[in-house]
């Protein structure tokens, strides 16, 4: 069993100090269920078809970056979890009158390991336990009648 990173250690992975108002030595709970981190939702799914899995590098994967604030949601390995994989969804054309594709990524965490979803600002760190997950982003109905995708 790997020793999970603390919040402070996890944030160091993305070169961010712990915001002053949050507790640095808090252990990040590693969960197998549904978790939300700001505008992202991680939820367990059955193994997806037709995706090309790639290892999550030690330097992490930038899942999405907010253009407005520069804040980023990163996917990282937990301590010693070199088996964590991720995949980009295969996209099909989506037009204005169709449902937007909210999928951002798939994540696969082997037994005994852990993944980390890290936000560079207030949303902190979420620990992802063993399993296969989908990461969706959030949308909002738009007053201009176009659905908007959100990135905090």
């Amino acid at each position: 069993m790997v020793v999970a990173f603390s919040y402070a250690q996890a944030l160091e992975l993305v070169g961010t100090a712990v915001p002053g108002h949050l507790q640095a030595d808090l252990e990040v709970p590693s969960l197998r269920g549904v978790q939300a981190q700001g505008d992202l939702l991680v939820f367990p799914i059955a193994e997806p078809d037709d995706v090309a899995w790639a290892p999550v590098p030690a330097t992490g994967v930038q899942l999405i970056r907010s253009e407005a604030t520069g804040n980023t949601h990163w996917l990282h390995q937990d301590q010693g979890s070199t088996g964590v994989q991720w995949a980009e969804p295969v996209r099909v054309p989506v037009f204005e009158d169709e449902e937007p594709d909210l999928r951002l990524a798939y994540v696969r965490v082997p037994e005994g390991q852990g993944g980390l979803l890290i936000h560079t600002e207030e949303h902190g760190v979420n620990g992802i336990g063993p399993g296969t997950y989908q990461v969706n982003r959030k949308r909002e109905a738009d007053p201009e009648s176009v659905q908007r995708l959100l990135a905090d």
């Binding site: 709970p29 969960l31 269920g33 549904v34 978790q35 939300a36 981190q37 700001g38 939702l41 939820f43 449902e99 909210l102 999928r103 936000h119 949303h123 902190g124 760190v125 979420n126 969706n136 982003r137 959030k138 949308r139 909002e140």
Partner: peptide
């Protein structure tokens, strides 16, 4: 709806940060 998941899935949310 915002996250594009069935409401039953969202109701099982364990942690929100």
């Amino acid at each position: 709806w915002q996250y594009g998941v069935p409401v039953a899935v969202y109701r099982t949310l364990q942690r929100r940060t």
